[in-house]
């Protein structure tokens, strides 16, 4: 910001302060900050729209995403088919909406399950310490030393392709990050002076854990869920694009994109892959905006 505009801003604040208009803040600062963050708000709106249209897909389209129509192959977008039709005459718009259900389920579902497992294991072993902690730490290191997509593909090649398998694999490869965060959080919070102060007041361990430590870790946990959800949605899209993710019979965002591997489709039938790619990008973007807003809102060290 230039010094002149800064000076103007200062004058304004000073005038209001002198007039006694400013008073001490009350209410949830975190919530206020989240709502004040324009990007997070945009993210929240975008996120809600995409979720809503996917969940209530039948309200927005009467087309059947699976119905093959041989008289309507590779049609460009029209009033009947907003995103056109694919090579077997299926309505792309309907496929994007219904595909969103599966993709979001895989991403959000795996993200939440991985978070729950990671936090439970991390908090427990971080608190208990001992050999259990060592084993969990080593196992997580093991998982994390693989490039994620290679580990995922390795597991896919071993246990085979299916929706459930994919989610299992995502949880398996994704719990480590959350586990380490929860554990590190637990370890450092246990050493924090305010926690030690609470201990010296004679508060019970359970009270300290749930009333004082957990709320402090909640922000990072939420942020982590958004991050892993975004990562899983991208991973699903990538895998299905390669034809190695969710079986091709189920419409998902990645599976719809699969056709773009063909140069002919890429060049001539943009509607078959561009809208769905944009949808994935927008959805992941909205999740990242929310995650970023949450991070700013829950991090008390950041002021502005």
């Amino acid at each position: 910001m230039s010094s002149r505009s800064l000076n103007k801003k200062f004058d304004k604040i000073l005038a209001r302060e002198e007039a006694g208009e400013l008073s001490s803040n009350s209410g949830s600062r975190a919530l206020k900050k989240l709502l004040n963050n324009r990007l997070a708000l945009v993210g929240l709106i975008l996120f809600s729209i995409i979720i809503f249209t996917a969940v209530f897909a039948p309200l927005f389209t009467s087309a059947d995403p699976m119905k093959i129509n041989l008289r309507n192959l590779s049609q460009p977008p029209s009033a009947d088919h907003w995103f056109g039709t694919d090579k077997t005459g299926r309505d792309v718009f309907a496929r994007v909406l219904y595909g969103g259900r599966v993709s979001i389920l895989v991403g959000l579902g795996s993200g939440i399950i991985a978070a729950i497992i990671g936090v439970l294991v991390g908090a427990y072993t971080g608190y208990k310490g001992g050999w259990l902690d060592v084993i969990a730490l080593r196992v997580s290191e093991l998982f994390m030393s693989f490039p994620q997509i290679i580990l995922v593909l390795l597991l896919v090649s071993i246990i085979g392709q299916s929706l459930i398998n994919l989610m299992i694999i995502f949880v398996l490869t994704g719990w480590g990050g959350m586990y380490r965060m929860a554990r590190a959080r637990m370890l450092s919070l246990r050493e924090e002076e305010y926690v030690q102060a609470l201990q010296s007041f004679g508060l019970s361990t359970a009270t300290i854990c749930y009333k004082h430590i957990l709320p402090n870790a909640l922000g990072p946990i939420m942020v982590n869920i958004t991050l892993s959800t975004a990562a899983f949605i991208l991973a699903e899209a990538g895998l299905s694009f390669l034809g190695l993710g969710v079986p091709a019979s189920i419409p998902t965002w990645g599976n719809i994109l699969n056709v773009a591997q063909e140069i002919r489709v890429l060049q001539n039938f943009w509607w078959m892959w561009l809208p769905v790619g944009a949808t994935i990008s927008l959805f992941v973007l909205s999740v990242n905006f929310i995650g970023d807003g949450l991070r700013d809102a829950t991090d008390p060290s950041q002021q502005g």
Binding site: F10, I13, L14, L22, N25, Q303
Partner: peptide, 10 residues
């Protein structure tokens, strides 16, 4: 010398 953080003036 005044400080202007958090939209307040100190």
């Amino acid at each position: 010398t005044y400080f202007y953080t958090n939209n307040r003036c100190n």
